[in-house]
Write a protein that binds this DNA or RNA. Structure first.
Lengths: 332, 332
DNA sequence: GATGAGACTGCCAACGTTTGCAGCAAGAGT
DNA sequence: ACTCTTGCTGCAAACGTTGGCAGTCTCATC
């Protein structure tokens, strides 16, 4: 079917080994034969069989990527960055979507682990022990989560949160509601802690509603709860929740950015489609993705040597748009 | 490293062939030995090597999926459906994103073609001849595009467009502007034709602006052009353009749904986050994805026999929300 | 002219799986 | 007692690639 080394070899009157070397280890073979082989190979449309190669090398030149929800606009930029970086390094990417189903996460990762050299898990919600065990079986890099004994790329929410709280305070807010993400989510913990610290420091009262799934629908539900409270400023676990909140509040006749302020996290492309546009804490999604690939490939290179579990931390910052403003007098 | 057939065989005192048969062709081996082998295999955590298997079978049990832009909310539902259906059938999915870069499309597809059994190309913009040639080299199914000699899954925009035009007419509109998609896009042609036919039938004047890339930014640009025209109703090539239009118009103080009506196509999840919510022509994205997989696997089964290039056509319908309304008196 | 070095190249085994063929034992039919 | 079937199992080849090892040839050196 496809052109094999043997056919190229026959056409050149050399052995398969020579052809193999000519194409992968150019300086090991006579310049003249090499160019001849290269020409014939190109002419015949030769492409190495990945199966044959990986059988002997033990590698697959493929990395796996597990995300909770491709439809969540936070992830596509990460996915794109992962693919781009992987492609640069001649790796293919297998993607699995768990559909926010925590139970499938580990199963999908295990399934993938048979056909990849390493794994990138984005925002996993599986129990720490299981993740550590997984990381012992093959190189794994976690995005948005720190795991014992494995590499990870995380964001530091503190700066962004501090800016967000200071922004609200400067507008006159003294009370903030946190619209929490999934209960067992690692990044929900991080964000909540960062927000609590920032509130403490600025003498702001912090309340909490939730948990909510990172979906627009959940945000709409959150809006109703929020509206019946006495708080005029909300910071949501992510943009989707924030957008759901905005959508629902607007629908109910409230003016977001005047009567109530909403801040999201992720600064996804969607932040700019609503009116008013969503004030959001920017997360460097693309960097998250490419850093994860770099870290993973590093681990692959070191192989069995020292796994050196590194954590890369990326900064966040507030992007102010129209969804935040001065609170009404009665809620200052 | 990983557990192999040979190890299981040794542990069971049988040959590798027997183990292989026991696990893939159960009725070919004695019931007793089979259960013993199955037990040991599970115990040892045996998992077949995909490389070994595909070397002899010639298959990879993987399908490729090429999309123009993961970040475009139209595609995630398709991707999810493809993955889900493929997983059911024990296939893995390799995804490639062309970033709307037409030139990369074919290159990515070719690269993928070496490691997959078949390919699904979503909304390709490559020239027909190249696509036909690609389809001759391996099984390919096209989504949102009909290609000579290859299977495809497309949508029939006619019904949805008819409903959209009738909806606008019933509100009092006599003029509609089409915000065109990319010039060489097959589905742009389809949509434009369907719209033209519907306008003709309803005695509506049709104008056109564009072309625009399917991105929110482009929609914003479209909004300014639209606003300076004398038309109070627009149907956009897709939801992203429509959302960009709405966002920009709202920003400039116009009331979408009153002073101007906007209709999108795709009915993506985003349609409900804006205010007013976007009236959109619903496209069955999930069905598009699973139908594509079904069609592709069918082609794989038939193998070299008869490629039988089938076209599956899915229906569209209008979903009325808040972005459409009665036109102002001076623009009736 | 013998020796050694160096540059290329070919042979062959190995990777893990599947599968056609042959072997074997046990039982059925004559 | 003989052959024939039937049911099960093992042998060995094949898939395409890589890489260690050894072989050949050329050329310089003494």
């Amino acid at each position: 079917m496809a052109v094999t080394l043997a056919e190229v070899a026959a056409a050149c009157n050399v052995s398969t080994s020579t052809v193999s070397r000519a194409l992968t280890d150019p300086e090991k073979v006579n310049a003249e034969t090499r160019t001849r082989i290269e020409r014939v190979a190109r002419q015949l449309g030769y492409a190495p069989s990945r199966a044959g190669r990986s059988l002997v090398s033990g590698r697959t030149d493929t990395v796996g990527l597990v995300v909770p929800d491709i439809a969540n606009p936070f992830f596509p930029p990460i996915i794109k960055a992962v693919q781009a970086r992987a492609r640069d390094k001649r790796y293919a990417v297998l993607i699995a979507d768990t559909d926010e189903h925590v139970a499938d996460e580990l199963e999908l990762a295990r399934g993938l682990s048979r056909q990849v050299d390493g794994l990138i898990l984005a925002s996993p919600r599986t129990a720490p022990a299981d993740l550590t065990r997984l990381a012992q079986q093959l190189p794994v890099v976690f995005v948005n989560r720190e795991v014992e004994g494995a590499g990870s790329v995380v964001i530091d929410e503190n700066e962004g949160m501090r800016e967000a709280v200071e922004h609200l305070v400067s507008l006159g807010h003294r009370r903030i509601t946190y619209l929490a993400g999934p209960r067992r989510s690692w990044s929900n913990q991080q964000r909540r802690d960062a927000l609590a610290a920032a509130c403490e420091q600025n003498d702001v009262e912090l309340r909490e509603l939730g948990p909510f799934e990172p979906q627009i629908q959940a945000g709409m539900r959150a809006a109703d709860l929020l509206q019946s409270s006495e708080v005029a400023a909300a910071i949501a676990y992510d943009d989707l929740i924030a957008l759901g909140v905005m959508s629902r509040l607007t629908e109910r006749g409230l003016q977001v950015g005047r009567e109530i302020s909403v801040i999201g996290i992720d600064d996804s492309p969607l932040s700019t489609v609503t009116h008013p546009m969503l004030t959001s804490i920017h997360v460097p999604a693309a960097e998250l993705g490419s850093a994860a690939v770099d870290l993973l490939l590093e681990q692959l290179r070191e192989a069995e040597a020292t796994p050196t579990p590194t954590t890369v931390k990326l900064e966040t910052r507030l992007v102010i748009r129209g969804s935040t403003g001065i609170p009404p007098d009665n809620l200052r």
